[in-house]
Simulated assay, not measured.
Amino acid sequence: MTVLRTVARPMLASMFVVGGINSLRHATALAPAAQPVSDAIAPLAPQLPVTPANVVRAHGAINLVAGAALATGRLPRLSALVLAGNLAPSTVQGHRFWAESDPAARSNQQIHFFKNLSMLGGLLMSSLDPDPHKKILVRRAKDKVVEAKDSVAAQISR
């Protein structure tokens, strides 16, 4: 891992780790904000205990685990994609600046919405970032195809 990745990945992951811990510690207090999400998920999974507090806990656990994985460089592309997938709906649900009538609240929600949008961009870039010691998946697949083609060609030419 380069010095840039060694520093940048934990920096990007820090908000998710801290937010995940906060969600797990204060799930009950944060639950009212997750009520619409809980109401939408409950009919899709009637066998699961879908409550607003459990939605907050699941969201927090995903952020904590994937954030820690990104910070430590373990499956960095996958963890960045998981975080991006977890961030997008929570941003739309949690920072609905367009629904605010109070100008101060609207401005605050708008700032948080665009901050999260910026973080989403960073996560998407991280999901495409090739590890310097490992080629990106598409390139590895292409190399395997070329290797197989060369092997078949060598077998045929004998």
Rank of each mutant, 00 (worst) to 15 (best):
A80D: 01
V92L: 15
L75C: 01
A66T: 00
N63W: 15
N63A: 14
V82Q: 01
L64N: 00
S90Q: 12
H59N: 13
A80P: 03
V56E: 05
A84H: 06
P76N: 09
A69Y: 03
L81W: 15
L64R: 00
R57Y: 01
V55T: 00
S79Q: 04
T72M: 12
N86W: 01
R57N: 00
S90E: 07
P89C: 04
A80Y: 03
A68R: 02
L87W: 10
A71K: 09
L75N: 12
L78W: 00
G60E: 06
L81G: 03
G85S: 08
V56R: 07
V92A: 15
V56A: 01
G73Y: 10
P89M: 10
R57I: 01
N63E: 15
R77V: 03
A58E: 03
L70S: 03
G67E: 08
L78D: 09
L75D: 00
P76M: 07
V92P: 12
R74G: 05
G85Y: 06
V56G: 05
V82N: 09
T72C: 11
G60Q: 03
H59L: 05
T72K: 10
L64V: 05
G85N: 10
L64A: 01
A61Q: 05
L64H: 04
N86A: 15
A66S: 10
A88K: 05
H59M: 09
I62A: 12
R57G: 01
V92D: 13
L70D: 08
N63D: 15
P76H: 06
S90W: 07
T72N: 04
T91S: 12
H59V: 00
G85M: 08
G73F: 01
R74V: 15
A69W: 11
R57D: 02
P89A: 04
L83C: 09
R77I: 06
T72Q: 08
V55L: 09
A84Q: 10
I62H: 01
R77K: 14
A66R: 10
R74I: 14
V82L: 11
T72I: 12
V82S: 08
A88L: 15
L81E: 08
A88W: 10
G85H: 02
I62P: 03
G85R: 12
N86D: 15
S90T: 14
G67D: 05
A71M: 09
N86H: 10
A71T: 07
L87S: 03
P89V: 08
I62M: 11
T72G: 03
P89S: 07
A69D: 07
P76D: 07
P89Q: 08
